[in-house]
Amino acid sequence: MVIRKRRAGGEKRTSVLDAVADVLATRGYENTRFADVSAAGGVAISTLQTYFGSRADMVIEAMAVFTDREVDALRAVAAAEPDPWHRLVAMVDRSLHNPERTRQILVEFWRSAMRDDELRDYSAEVQARYRAPFLTAVREGADRGEFTLTHDAEAVTDLLLAALAGLILSRVQHHPSPSPEGFRDVLLTQLRLMLGING
C-alpha cells in the first residue's frame, strides 16, 4: 500500500515534514493544524495547502515518512551486526533508547491507525517491515545452531516486539517504572531462555 501524496515542495518538503512531526509529537494527530506547522516550520499556510492539500493528508504523510525512517534505521542496525544474538541485542537497544519525540510520534501513529483505514493498512505494512529483521535474526541463529528455540520463531519475535511496544507506551505516559535499564535486563534474560542460549 502507498500513502497518497502530492509532489509539490521538492527538498523543502522534507524540512516541512520534519516540522509536522515535531508538532505531531507535542500536539497529537487531532490537534496538528496548518497554523501550528506554519508557526513551527516558518512556512505559509497557503504553501502547506499547496504541498499537501488537506490537514489530514499532511499529518498522514508525515507519519508515513517518519515510520519509514524508523524501519530504515533499524535495518541499518541489523545490517551492521553479523552475529544473530548481538544483532538482536543491538535492535533491542535501539528501541529502548529512542528519543521522546520518536516515542510520541509512534504512539500517535498507532492511535491514528486504529481509526483510519488507510493508516491501518499502512501500519500493518510498517509492522511487517519492522518485524522482519528481528525474525530473520531469530531464524538465522536457529539455522546456525546458535539458538535452540523453545517456541516458534514467529512467536518469539512477536513477544519481543510486544514487550518493546509496551515499554514505549509506558514511557510516553511517564510512568515511574519500569526503567529502561531494568526492563532491558529482564527482557534479554527472557529472550535468552526463549532462544535456548546458555550463559
Rank of each mutant, 00 (worst) to 15 (best):
R13D: 04
R13Y: 12
P176W: 13
A113G: 09
L161E: 15
A162L: 15
L187S: 01
A113Q: 08
P180L: 12
E154G: 12
L48W: 02
E125G: 05
R87E: 04
R94P: 03
G199P: 14
Y130K: 06
L160K: 06
Y29A: 00
R120Q: 13
R13H: 07
D143P: 04
E146Y: 09
F147V: 01
W110H: 09
P133A: 11
F34E: 00
E146K: 04
W110Q: 04
R115Q: 11
L187V: 12
Q49P: 06
N98Y: 12
A79H: 10
V20H: 00
A124E: 09
R27E: 01
N98K: 15
I105W: 01
R13E: 03
A64T: 14
E61V: 03
P84L: 09
L160H: 09
A62Q: 02
A64L: 02
P84D: 07
T102E: 09
A73G: 02
S179R: 13
D117E: 10
E154F: 07
L188Y: 15
D152K: 13
S179M: 03
R111W: 05
A40Y: 01
R55Y: 10
I60Y: 05
E100H: 06
K5A: 15
A76H: 09
V107H: 05
V65M: 05
E11G: 03
D72M: 04
V92D: 10
R69H: 01
V43Q: 02
T14Y: 13
G41L: 02
A35C: 01
M91S: 09
R101S: 10
E11A: 14
R139G: 01
V92E: 08
D18T: 08
A137D: 04
V107S: 08
R115K: 10
R7G: 13
R94H: 12
A19Y: 04
E70A: 06
D57K: 09
L17M: 10
A137H: 07
E140C: 11
V186H: 15
V92P: 08
G9T: 10
F109H: 07
M1Q: 12
I60V: 12
